[in-house]
């Protein structure tokens, strides 16, 4: 009798424990389901963020690589063009230096002297020129009253450097000075031959 009561009590306790554990497990299952659902949304957001950050980073790196290689190529092209322009320039200067000092050159020198004396506002000037041009310039100066050819010579491709008699004003009309003033435009024209600019 006593053992029957004991067994029933044990069964009852077991039954209750089983029910409690069952409901606890159900609760835990529901709880973990909820947590999982919540985490999934967060995870998806996190996943999207990682993907989007990754894309941004990839885009940044692509821009960096493309940008620097484009620039590098362009800079190499610039150096090549400059080298070619320099070569063309050197050849042109050589030809100018060796050109015939005939009648047309005397006309050019006269025009250069006139431009200089007009700018300085007087023909009473001292004219400097190169060794090669002394004769041409000397004969041209006969047409400019008060002008004199300097004893000193200057190093230049051609043309004249005109100085006022008091030495305070100088007008450099040598071919070198004129070429140097026009060099940017000449560079552009040479570069255009290489198809670099319009």
């Amino acid at each position: 009798m006593a053992s029957d009561t004991l067994e029933r009590t044990i069964d009852k306790i077991l039954d209750q424990t089983q029910k409690r554990l069952g409901s606890e497990l159900d609760g835990a299952l529901a709880e973990s389901g909820k947590t999982l659902d919540g985490a999934r949304a967060g995870l998806e957001a996190e996943y999207d963020k990682i993907i989007s950050d990754g894309r941004k980073e990839a885009d940044k790196i692509q821009k960096q690589i493309v940008g620097s290689s484009d620039l590098e190529a362009r800079n190499k092209q610039l150096l090549l063009v400059e080298e070619a322009v320099d070569r063309a320039f050197t050849q042109a200067l050589g030809r100018i230096s060796d050109m015939d000092r005939g009648d047309s050159y005397a006309e050019l020198v006269e025009a250069l002297v006139r431009e200089a004396t007009d700018t300085l506002g007087s023909t009473e000037v001292v004219v400097y020129t190169s060794e090669k041009d002394r004769d041409v310039v000397g004969s041209v100066l006969n047409g400019f009253a008060g002008s004199q050819l300097a004893d000193d010579i200057i190093e230049c491709l051609g043309g004249v450097r005109v100085v006022s008699t008091d030495g305070t004003m100088t007008f450099d009309n040598t071919l070198d000075a004129r070429i140097s003033r026009l060099k940017p435009l000449i560079r552009k024209q040479i570069a255009a031959k290489f198809g670099v600019v319009n």
């Binding site: 305070t168 450099d172 000075a177 003033r181 026009l182």
Partner: peptide, 12 residues
Amino acid sequence: MTSVGGVQYSKI
């Protein structure tokens, strides 16, 4: 841009 240069003054 011009090929004509200006006058150089040396009286400062």
